[in-house]
Amino acid sequence: MKFLVTVGIALALLTLESVVVKQAGLVLGRIDVTVVLVAFLALRATLLEGAFSAFAVGYLLDLMSGQPTGLFTFLAVFTFLVGRLVATFVDVRGGLSFALFAMGADVGHGLLATFFTWLTVKDGGTGPVLAGLPVQVALTGAAALALFPLLRRFEAAQDRPAGLLR
């Protein structure tokens, strides 16, 4: 997917998520829509395009968090790189396998986020976040399942080869 389209989708998804979270009152069980996007990039994008897009997606998440520290920007690029590595060993084609792939990415992303947060805060508080992780991973998996056809459609719309009449 092209960089600007990825940024646009990330912005739309994050905005939508923040409103849904407000309405649903999900205090700790969030949906990691950005991880879904980064997982998709890991499967389909080239190294440079994907790294830049993941960087932008992470930056947006950092910005939405209220306290931008750079953590989520780093984690997005890291998740993209690890995802690319894992993708060479596993075959991800259908919606279900993509959901499992995104859930795996979310587990890693969530654990690393908790670890780095603990590293800087160090006065407890990781318990509630870790307790909410299974729900978060499950919700992210469901979101991945729902978003997969949409992301593929966006990708297909951009990868159309230029013909004589285009």
Binding site: S18, R30, V33, S65, Q67, V129, Q136
Partner: peptide, 9 residues
């Protein structure tokens, strides 16, 4: 809106 990151409420 609500911050979509669980790290900070």
């Amino acid at each position: 809106g609500v911050n979509p990151v669980a790290k900070l409420l």
